[in-house]
Structure formats: C-alpha cells, structure tokens
Design a protein around this nucleic acid. Sequence first.
DNA 1: CCTGTTATGGCACCGGGTGCCAGTAAGAGG
DNA 2: CCTCTTACTGGCACCCGGTGCCATAACAGG
Lengths: 209, 209
Amino acid sequence: MHATNTDDARGRGARVRAGRRRITSRAELEQVAFDLFEQRGFEQTTVEDIASAAGIGRRTFFRYFASKNEVPWGDFDGELARMRRRLAATPPQAPLMEAIRQAVVDFNKMPAEQWPAHRRRMTFILGVPALQAHSTLRFAAWRAVIADFAGQRTGQRPDDLLPSTIAHAMLGVAVAAYEQWLASPDADLCELLDAGVRALRSAFASSGE
Amino acid sequence: MHATNTDDARGRGARVRAGRRRITSRAELEQVAFDLFEQRGFEQTTVEDIASAAGIGRRTFFRYFASKNEVPWGDFDGELARMRRRLAATPPQAPLMEAIRQAVVDFNKMPAEQWPAHRRRMTFILGVPALQAHSTLRFAAWRAVIADFAGQRTGQRPDDLLPSTIAHAMLGVAVAAYEQWLASPDADLCELLDAGVRALRSAFASSGE
DNA sequence: CCTGTTATGGCACCGGGTGCCAGTAAGAGG
DNA sequence: CCTCTTACTGGCACCCGGTGCCATAACAGG
C-alpha cells in the first residue's frame, strides 16, 4: 500500500518530481491511528504507537500531521472550499438565513457508504476533549466561510457584528445537530441540521418580535 | 500578601483548619501570570517563569491551577452558578428566547471599574489560540446552564435538539459579541450582546416564515 | 512537646512537539 | 552508469506542560 509519485500524495496533480517518494499517506496513517484510538482511546495512544504501527518514525509522523489533534480532520480545507463554492452558487434572491441553511444542509449530504466513516471521524472530533478543544481552531475557518458570505450579502465586513454573529450561531446549530446525530445511531444528519435551524428560527419567532 | 487561615483561600467559609497555610492564592498567581503574558506572550511564558516570578515551585503552581490554560478563568464556576440563579429567577411568562437574552445580558453587567480586568481576561481567552481552544471545554458548562433552562421551559431533556441548539447558538452569539467588544476599545459589552441577539432574531425573521 | 493535618517543592518521568542533520531513495542529465 | 539535485526519512537532543511520589515544613490542638 504505497503511494506512488503520480497520485496526489505528491501534491495536487503536480508533475512527477525528483526526490524520494513518500513512504505513506495521511489517509493510511489516519486508518492506523483510528484503529488504535478505538482500541485504547485517544489519550492512551501515543504518537509513538501510531508511528510504529504504521512502520514509520515518530519524527516522520509530524511531517504528515502538524499535531496528533490534526489526525481526524482529513481534507477539511478542501471541504470548506466546496462549501464556499456552494454558497457562491446560491441565487441572490434567496433570503440570507435560508441560503445559509440550505448550503449547510447540502454541504453535509454524502453517499450513504461514507456515513460510517464520517460518523467515526466526528465521534472523535466532538467526543474526545482534546479534539473538541482543538476543533475550535479548525471551525474558525468554517465560520469565516459563513461570515464572508453573510458579509457580502449584507454589505458589511465579515468581522462586523451581524456576519460574525450569524457565523458563530450557525456553527453552534451545526455542532448541536452533529451531537444529536452521533447520539442516535440511525438519525439522518441533514434532517437534523435542517430541523436545528428551523427550531432556532421558530424559537426566535415565538419570542415576540 | 499572605492568605490567612480565615479567608476563603482555605476554603469556602470553612473553619480554620489545621495544617500549613497556603503560600499564595489563585488571584495573586493570576496577576503575576497576566503580567508575564502581556510582556512575552502566553506561549513564550513558561509555567516555570510564572512560578519563579511568584516565588513558588513549579510543582506548586499546578496545585493552584490544573493547567496553564486555566489561569485566566478566575471563578468561572461561581459565575455560572450566578447565571443559573439569574435564569431561575425569570418570570415564567416571559418568552423563552427573551428570557435567555435578558439573562445573558444581565449576567455580563458589572461595575465599570471591573471592565479593564475583564477585558484583559477575555482578550487572553478569546485571543490566544491555545486558550481559545481550551475555552470550548469551559464553555460546555456555560451551554449546560442555558440548555438546562431551555429544557425545563420546553419540557424536553437538556440534550435534546432544541435546548442543545439554543445553547450552542446563544454561546455563539455571546462569543461574537465579546469579540466585537474586544476589538473596539469603547464599546459597551451589554449593548453588543443585546444587539447580537436582536440581529440574529431579525435575520431569521426576514428569512421567510 | 507531640500528633495529626495540610501545603510545599524537589525529583524523576511521560508525552507532544521541534530544530538539526546525516542518510537515503528517487529523477534528471551528462 | 555515474553524479547532481531534490525531497522524504528518522534518529537525537531538547523544550515544555503535566503527574506521581515523597520528604519536609508549617500549622492547630491537646
């Protein structure tokens, strides 16, 4: 199971460059790490454990992941780029919060065979304290995507009160829906996301203008 | 500047107990630490630096704070208890989101002379990446206070979708308001909190339904 | 002064993370 | 085929946060 010079382990569609090939890949290390995390728990698994289980040196692990906390995040940046494109493609006449709701729900749609893997990933991210803490740093980029969109729509800067508040609040709604999803084995993620947004909206609606 | 056996450094109104007196206090260590954080930055300040600046051993530092990340949190648990009481005292006829908004705004009211200290504290918590990450773990308790209240009001369990979503979203709104406050030297925190909630409500209101 | 109690802080140790650097596996070009 | 360049590997030493252990110091009460 080695990465070759032609696949994306060498960089996005880049030409075959000179130099030694990478000995493994993020995906492969993720698999090894996840297995160990499930057996012994995240805290009980050392980077040394992961490295030697993957047949690499501890030092090399840190060339694939900036930290142990980064392991479960896959290609999150790529996903965010996808969400950004999805938002950019919304019809301009749609109300702001409607547009965001649909984009967030849409963004979390995926083929059914990916559900278990995604569930495992998110169980770690939202369940393990250290990872939960770290997620805040990653989610800042998620919020930035929403805030940028809300800023454009309202003609404000992304870090103004309204865009920033919408972004923070929507992240909260999304995380709440995810927690609900992880807690119930056969729930539908997208329905929960949708229900969450609608629930919050109606909670506000019945709070007297 | 020694704690005596009679003040709360020995425990909440407990009798004067036997045993050696504590050599310092959380508040005192916080001051020392804050000064160093501001001079060199949080990451550049080691626990050893704080300890020796305070004239105690490194080991002793960890008897006052479970971790370096805990330093800026003061008596957060006590504050949460206050917020819980504040919520419990809300008239039952007030709409749910209204009650929460008022409680959150109210909860953040404080005498003007405390503003600079509070600002400094929050600048660390929301500005330093490591502390920002750690805050998620602390804020879980904040969310629990809101979720418990929302659960009681709606007759649901606190970890059901609606209460949990409201709690997550309100935390988001509060953090956004805090960030705004920290960014502008002479803004009013409570007004920003209030404005944030109202902004989100009207964003939802103009999204059809 | 003795006893039980509580706080201190040194020591050794663990684990995440980093700078450094010598080695090693590749492609490119003579 | 040999060499040059490129880039990945991984060992080593080190830093720092955090913990278990334990001897010792300071206190209250008898």
